[in-house]
Design a protein around this nucleic acid. Structure first.
Length: 284
DNA sequence: ACAGTATAAATAGGCACACC
DNA sequence: GGTGTGCCTATTTATACTGT
């Protein structure tokens, strides 16, 4: 019989609980005496199901817990360091914290050498101008001149930002060079499944919301359309609103796809968030 | 009897607040 | 300003239950 599962490698993961789950399945298959109880014993936990609690996300790993796990899983120094960052990143409470540890992870040699694409994806989303730049490339009057490109954006970009961004887009196969040394869009769609890259998505949204706020000053009323609603709603209605937004977004995309020529690149943000949460705890 | 799961109980740590 | 208290949450330990 050949083994159906391979030894999971920590560097392949962005979610440490997923890593533990796969590792458990692997151990279970290859090591007959391995069990939750056995693991707790060698790791120094007295609770027999501790591994599972962590694995299922019922508990978080403490700093001490990370050490115990590392030792019991026989991680080497590099793996241990990576594992620690992964745990801290996954368990981070605030967005800033999460972003901090994501950066730390991307700094590690593993990502520099083994996974340069993940880093490029993170950077792609982390700077707001990559996505509109790709749209600009699709415009009929696009000129491959960093100076010209930099001028098209509001706020203006620097030439070096443009050069960097073009390189990044090319690396990610989102645009490609043409014979006459210009660029065209590709059909390639970036996947945002990985949490390292999706941390970049959060950065992107934050920047775009920020840009929306700045647009109030930057553009005249006839160039923009900004409105907002404040409403009291039930949980059920929130679900309905989300559906409505999704349908609306689909309609927008369909309309835009019918467009024959691109003259401007604009941003449309959708935001729905609570102002006052339901009374789970009682405040006056 | 043992592995896995669920739950209760005990403990530790963090935070706001008041008091000195 | 510093310190102590109570409360809340998270972590850890202990125990009970289920199924093979």
């Amino acid at each position: 019989m050949t083994k159906t599962t391979e030894q999971p490698i920590i560097f392949d993961y962005t979610l440490y609980r997923k890593f533990l789950k796969d590792l458990y399945l692997f151990k279970k298959e290859t090591t007959p005496y391995f069990s939750y109880r056995y693991f707790s014993k060698i790791a120094g936990f007295t609770s027999p199901n501790y591994f599972k609690l962590i694995m299922d996300g019922k508990r978080n790993l403490s700093s001490d817990g990370i050490n115990k796990f590392s030792k019991a899983l026989k991680l080497n120094a590099k793996e241990k360091h990576f594992f620690r960052l992964l745990v801290l990143m996954n368990q981070a409470k605030t967005a800033e914290e999460k972003d901090f540890f994501t950066r730390q992870l991307l700094k590690s040699k593993v990502y520099k050498t083994l996974k340069p694409l993940t880093q490029a994806q993170y950077n792609y989303y982390s700077h707001w101008y990559h996505i509109p730049l790709r749209e600009l490339v699709g415009r009929s009057d696009f000129i491959n001149d960093p100076k010209w490109i930099a001028r098209q954006f509001t706020p203006k970009l620097t030439e070096s930002q443009v050069k960097e961004a073009l390189k990044r887009l090319e690396k990610l196969d989102l645009i490609k060079k043409t014979k006459d040394l210009s660029y065209v869009q590709t059909d390639f769609a970036i996947s945002t499944g990985e949490s390292v890259a999706s941390q970049g998505v959060i950065n992107y949204h934050r920047q775009m919301i920020q840009m929306g706020s700045e647009a109030l000053d930057r553009f005249d009323q006839d160039e923009r359309d900004i409105s907002s609603l404040t409403m009291g709603v039930s949980k059920d209605t929130i679900k309905k609103l989300k559906h409505l937004i999704r349908d609306f977004r689909k309609e927008i995309i369909a309309t835009v796809n019918e467009d024959q020529k691109i003259e401007e690149v604009v941003q449309l943000n959708f935001q729905l968030f609570p102002l006052i949460k339901s009374n789970g705890d009682e405040n006056e």
